[in-house]
């Protein structure tokens, strides 16, 4: 059908699946407009990545991504689709920390856009049970992508990203391995199991573990990083 063919031709040209015909201003404009949409959203969502990457290569990968197919009608989700594409198809392998950097930058958008319910702060108590709020993400990283000019520094890092309900922005905090393990276990199996796990690993009594984590957990409650269940 000629109408479908005309649409397919335009898409193919816009996505660099077909050559741009010479002296065709219309196709040229649409190719530029479509590319600009993708470029603008991706470079704004990933400013650190954009600074790090070779610009020509970035352009080339955007076209590959377009051909792969962006599915979401909602543009704010486009950077996450791009991130998944980069990871799945092993793009930008010359940047070993690329997947972690894209995750780090995406988290800010993801946590900002989540649908939170208003919650009242409550006092922390070891007699209650808790889990991580949906405003929080925990991640083990192999590169220090959360610190300026240390992106390529290899190591073992544990990051807590959270939406701050008072400042209305996303913060990142590097946490210790015991805290990371504690929060992971708490989220999966509850507070008592988390205490048990750390007591076993650190060869301390439960009382000592409780004492060790008390101030931190009180702060996490205040920041609504933990919620009562």
């Amino acid at each position: 059908m000629r109408e479908f063919k005309a649409q397919k031709k335009l898409i193919d040209i816009a996505f660099e699946n077909a050559k741009l015909p010479k002296n065709h201003q219309g196709y040229k404009i649409y190719k530029a407009l479509v590319f600009h949409r993708f470029f603008e959203v991706l470079s704004n969502a990933y400013p650190i990545f954009y600074e790090e990457v070779d610009k020509k290569r970035f352009e080339k990968i955007i076209y590959e991504f377009m051909r792969y197919g962006a599915k979401s009608e909602v543009m704010w989700k486009l950077p996450n689709e791009f991130r998944t594409f980069v990871k799945k198809h092993k793009k930008f392998q010359e940047i070993p920390y690329v997947n972690e950097l894209l995750w780090f930058e995406w988290v800010e958008v993801a946590l900002m856009m989540r649908n939170y319910k208003s919650q009242k702060e409550k006092k922390f108590s070891y007699s209650k049970n808790y889990k991580l709020n949906s405003s929080v993400l925990l991640k083990k990283l192999d590169y220090k992508v959360f610190e300026k000019e240390s992106y390529d520094k290899k190591g073992e890092y544990y990051l807590l990203a959270y939406y701050d309900f008072n400042d209305l922005q996303v913060y990142y905090r590097e946490i210790s391995l015991p805290m990371y393990m504690f929060l992971k276990e708490l989220n999966k199996n509850g507070l008592n199991q988390a205490i048990n796990l750390i007591a076993k690993k650190s060869k301390q009594t439960k009382k000592e573990v409780k004492e060790f984590f008390k101030a931190s957990l009180e702060e996490l409650i205040n920041l609504r990083i933990l919620k009562r269940i």
Partner: peptide, 12 residues
């Protein structure tokens, strides 16, 4: 074909 362009493209 399921791929978004995020632009308004013309019809035949």
């Amino acid at each position: 074909l399921g791929s978004q362009t995020y632009d308004l493209l013309p019809l035949s």
